[in-house]
Design a protein around this nucleic acid. Structure first.
Lengths: 216, 216
DNA sequence: GCATGATTTAAACGGTTGTTTTATACAGGC
DNA sequence: GCCTGTATAAAACAACCGTTTAAATCATGC
């Protein structure tokens, strides 16, 4: 029970909490489970460090915001106005990286599950996540989309289309068990991610082409 | 507390449980809440009728399967081999109905939330839902997709593409709070659903066109 | 080496959980 | 009438919940 880790006890508790909250839900997770999963820590630490179980929940959300900022740094607000072809290529790599993260990075499962649950409950934590990670990323996607199609990046059509593209990626994380079972896969290894990537890339360029020849 | 309802007490309990399980999660919901929401019934009824809270959870899943069968009857296995244009129109109405259901029917929120949660937990109830509602509907979608593009309806590409289309629809239910906030809407009224429908229809025909001119 | 503050521990708190028990009301067959 | 099985009721059950308390341990500056 010595402190040999570089991580502080506080960080250990947060990491365990994100994993458990995401996997089984906030209410279903007990602080004793968290303390145990954090390396056999004491139950009282949750109250000590975070005030309450609800405080720990908030701390988890803030940690997620920080972690995603580290993984996907926000692009500078004003980007060089690339051409349509360049913007399309940037869109492609953006969605590709997002898919890789969602299907391949192990910790993404916990993060996505946590965000998903908070999203359904629409509590106070939802605001932290929306302001911290969702809004900026979506705006960036819309900016690229506007450049690639030559349309208003903040039009209602663009914003909704951006969500429809995100939905495609996210389903392969949220609906992963369904996809795996229906495809007869044993999981989503890098080879399967490439297979999905081909589908999404095809969809992307097809939709972009439709908007370019008829900007509505 | 007389039995004036046409619904049996059992059905009342299941209805209340689906609503509460979907809205706040299985663990977060107490059997006393359910009994109260079912019209002030007694707590012991849950054990009496369903054996346990977990048994009630299974009964909810089976009820959801039955209800969705009632709303979206499965198409007969062999459909008249319609032409490509007819198949595309059928795809369009199918996704359109699905979106309507997901965004407009009030009870869809509870059903979708329930399914979503069970999907994340991958327990025994997930099997009931996959076998009962997901597999058949996805196969039907693939069949139509095959007809509309002239490709193998059970190829890996077709099955994945079908999921990518479903993902687009589902995001507007799962991510509803995000969409509403980002678009500055106050909710998703029928007018907003039509707006989304335009986007999804555009995407659908664009992707179909891509596969038709290059079947890969 | 001792005072000081932060960290960790064990134990207990009242309250709530799912379930069981026991008793009561109510139907229909004989 | 009574008997039988189903349905509802109230109360109690042990187990567990999040939180608090109070004491022990640790690191650190002086």
């Amino acid at each position: 029970m010595q402190d040999n880790d570089p991580q502080s006890t506080r960080d250990l508790v947060i990491a365990a909490a994100i994993r458990l909250f995401g996997h089984q839900g906030y209410e279903a997770t007990t602080v004793r489970q968290i303390a145990l999963a954090a390396g056999g820590q004491n139950v009282a630490l949750v109250s000590y460090y975070f005030g309450s179980k609800e405080g720990l929940r908030r701390a988890c959300a803030q940690e997620i915001v920080a972690r995603i900022h580290r993984i996907f740094p926000t692009a500078p607000d004003e980007m060089p106005a690339a051409g349509q072809a360049a913007a399309e290529r940037q869109l492609e790599t953006l969605l590709s990286l997002f898919l890789d993260f969602m299907t391949q990075v192990p910790e993404a499962e916990d993060l996505a599950a946590f965000v998903l649950r908070e999203l359904t409950e629409s509590g106070e934590v939802f605001d932290i996540l929306y302001d911290g990670v969702i809004a900026d990323r979506h705006r960036q996607l819309c900016r690229l989309w506007g450049q690639a199609t030559g349309t208003d990046p903040e039009s209602e059509t663009t914003r909704l289309t951006a969500f429809s593209m995100l939905g495609q990626v996210l389903y392969f994380r949220i609906g992963r068990p369904v996809v795996v079972r229906r495809l007869g896969w044993s999981g989503i290894a890098p080879a399967e991610t490439e297979q999905i990537k081909k589908i999404l890339t095809t969809n992307l360029s097809a939709i972009l082409a439709a908007y370019r020849e008829d900007p509505e």
